[in-house]
Amino acid sequence: MRRAGRRGPGVDTGLLLGDASKLLPEPSRRLFLRNAASLGALTLFTGCEIVDGRSAEKALRVVSQFNDWVQARLFNPNRLAPTYAESAITRPFPFNGYYPEEAAPDIDEDRYKLIVDGLVASRRRRRSPGSSASRAGAPSANGQARRSRTSSHASAPT
């Protein structure tokens, strides 16, 4: 995690805060354990209050930590994801984010940098593959990045 004081150059504070607040949408945050007609009916059977309250949320966190442990046991670092033919790439590449595509910030490709920081083996800066810097340099590792709409969130299934 990046602390506020160590924000790299070129990081727009407003955009960052906007993204962070979107991470926790307040109205649905309160619906976290509610909003479930099916569960409401279930309490009739069980006779206990499981829909509401922090105890359920806490229990879910505990199970989530157990899942992390199981996933770590399952994970084999030598097992690589299969390589797919180029024809298997979906074009245009589907937008992936926790906000709708219209809300994605417009980014100046020539100035955009992705900084890999924190608890990583090698800290580095990357330019957007479409930028003039990367066009001149090494071959693009991510030819699928959307022009001018770059999400710095990556999640890879393991």
Binding site: S28, L33, A36, A37, S38
Partner: peptide, 9 residues
């Protein structure tokens, strides 16, 4: 009819 409020939930 859904449970969890949002994707992560």
């Amino acid at each position: 009819l859904t449970l969890g409020g949002w994707l992560a939930g």
